[in-house]
Design a protein around this nucleic acid. Structure first.
Lengths: 229, 229
DNA sequence: ATTTGTGAACAATTTCACAGCG
DNA sequence: CGCTGTGAAATTGTTCACAAAT
């Protein structure tokens, strides 16, 4: 969509799967196959009509309608999310900011007064909110999710570092900022390790590990296997 | 790891793949297979030693060392990241906060003075930073990434809504907050659509779509296919 | 002359199911 | 007997390659 929107802004009328794939950094066959699930919107020998494709994808992805969301937990992250311009421009309207701290109540954040958790159910029902964002500390997240769900929310974006237990039919997506960094650090470590492997093996004067475990039995000998990222 | 840490805090000595899988919400066979890539750390008939497993996984994931990181772009999101406690507790040390706005220079954010972009190269070299976080507007992200990479950064966590073009050997992970919400909205729409499908079909008085395209030819008739999330 | 749309081939990942160990 | 470790099977996802369409 981002690549398409860029083309649209440059008034490019049509694009081939090959061009679009290059712009988006994906395989052209995959792109065509994905589009084919939406229907046959391309023209053979020509490509895809940019505007029409934007419209069809927007519609299919639900970008043509407005989604009211609530943000629960107005700490640093919650406030950053409230101020984040990317939401409004993509059809998300922040219906309310909710925090459990009574001292926060009434304080303006992103030009909107923070409301107390007591109001949670009322806010959700009055605004027909079906998507909630949880930016509370880990300890509060499960309870907040239960209240959100009881009040009618069926999709949750969870920034708290906990696995939420939710009933069937409720979607949860988790964003864990630390894990993203950890994944990078993991690969970073491997880059360094590969370079040092020979040297370390040759000059090993390190003591064996304290809690001595069984020797590695995996198929790759001593080389640690790659875990999926 | 989170599930394991919780067990460790409760001083649970051993855990079976079945129990741990239930706690983490995954399949027990997958968990065993994943662990087997690290080596054979379990005991048949008993399970895994929690402490030993925590240690082995930490080591393998690179959690035993400290990673200095820089955050570039100290807007709302950058400030939230700077204040985010989760980084420090997982071995990430914020070495510097960098912003292009001269007015920001010297201002304290998260108890640390913001430094100007001019200092970027110096900071990275002096601190041996190999991981950079980009929280700038989309327009600045590519240029920032190039400077980071030229100065020695080889892993980037990108919050800007752009696909970064980076040379071989540099890892990029992208976090796009809007896309997370869009994915939820997509499923939300489908939930609603499924319920309304029958009614809509029966009582369709809507005009045909304005820009009329070819009729859907996909194998599923008129039912939109599920796109991978 | 191009480029789509898509079966079929291929590749990766997940799960099953059970031999074998403690 | 319970539980790991892991081949084999099942499933899911991606890419190839080409007939069909314009």
């Amino acid at each position: 969509m981002r690549a398409l929107t860029a083309l649209s802004e440059r008034s490019v009328p049509t694009v081939s799967s090959e061009e679009l794939a290059a712009a988006a950094g994906v395989n052209s066959a995959k792109l065509r196959k994905d589009f084919s699930y939406l229907g046959s919107y391309g023209t053979r020998g020509v490509g895809y009509d940019v505007e029409y494709l934007v419209y069809q994808i927007s519609r299919e992805l639900g970008l043509t309608q407005d989604w009211p969301v609530v943000i629960v937990g107005i700490g640093n992250l919650g406030a950053a999310l409230a101020n984040y311009g990317g939401f409004a421009s993509r059809g998300f309207r922040v219906a309310a900011l909710i925090d459990a701290d009574p001292a926060m109540a009434g304080k303006p954040v992103a030009g909107m007064p923070v409301q107390h958790t007591d109001e949670l159910e009322k806010i959700i029902e009055e605004n027909g909110v079906s998507i909630g964002v949880i930016a509370t500390p880990a300890g509060a997240a499960q309870q907040v999710s239960e209240r959100l769900i009881a009040a009618g929310v069926t999709s949750i974006l969870n920034f708290a570092p906990t696995v939420l237990q939710v009933p069937e039919g409720v979607d949860v997506r988790k964003v864990d900022l630390s894990i993203e960094l950890q994944i990078l650090a993991f690969h970073e470590q491997r880059k360094a390790g590969d370079a040092e492997a020979a040297a370390a093996a040759a000059a090993s004067v390190l003591p064996p590990r304290a809690a001595d475990g069984p020797t590695r039995k995996g198929p790759d000998g001593d080389v640690p296997a790659v875990m999926p990222a």
